[in-house]
């Protein structure tokens, strides 16, 4: 079904392209927001991704690869957003999601720790983490999406989880120490 729609869009059917874009928009926006940590930039990245996709669709040889191709365009668009910034890591701004509550799946302390740990990751590590832990892609599909070897994906995942673990453990130690001082 989707193959037919992709082929129609590839042949210039704008309504077919709109259907594809509407189906993919929310997911692309979520990925971009998580990578960039900035909604305004994420909106820009999604828009540029979709415009590129429309222009370049006739060159997509295999319609079955549309999803992976679109995600790759998005990750590149996120990198482009970062390219114009003075410092990638310094520029990303804290985005406040919905008011957090302790009864959510993640506690307030966890959120802050994960936020801090995530900020220590490089953008390409964030992309791999998001594709794996948020989208749920297995390693070979991430490699296919990003156009990098599967071994590189594995090493990035390993490094990212190690970095997060270090950050969480450090925060946990600080918490214990400060609790001790208070007491």
């Amino acid at each position: 079904m989707q193959r037919d729609v992709v082929e129609a869009a590839r042949n210039g059917d704008h309504e077919a392209f709109e259907a594809l874009a509407m189906a993919a928009g929310d997911r692309l926006f979520a990925i971009a927001t998580l990578i960039l940590r900035d909604r305004q930039r994420a909106e820009d990245a999604v828009q540029e991704t979709l415009v590129h996709a429309w222009r370049e669709l006739p060159r997509l040889r295999d319609p079955e690869r549309f999803e992976a191709w679109l995600r790759r365009l998005l990750v590149n668009a996120c990198a482009d957003q970062g390219r114009y910034q003075r410092r990638w890591s310094a520029e990303v701004r804290m985005i406040r999601s919905e008011p957090s509550t302790e009864d959510g799946a993640t506690s307030l302390a966890d959120r802050d720790q994960l936020e801090r740990g995530f900020r220590r990751l490089k953008p390409e590590q964030r992309a791999v983490v998001i594709l794996h832990f948020y989208i749920g892609l297995p390693v070979p599909e991430i490699a296919d999406t990003l156009g990098i070897p599967a071994g590189t994906v594995k090493s990035r995942l390993h490094y990212a989880t190690a970095t997060l673990r270090t950050a969480l453990e450090a925060d946990a130690r600080e918490g214990i120490a400060s609790n001790g001082q208070t007491a």
Binding site: F29, S97, T106, T161
Partner: peptide, 12 residues
């Protein structure tokens, strides 16, 4: 924890 946090952080 990471999966849960990403799900909560992602805009809908």
């Amino acid at each position: 924890r990471l999966s849960a946090w990403l799900l909560e952080e992602a805009p809908s």
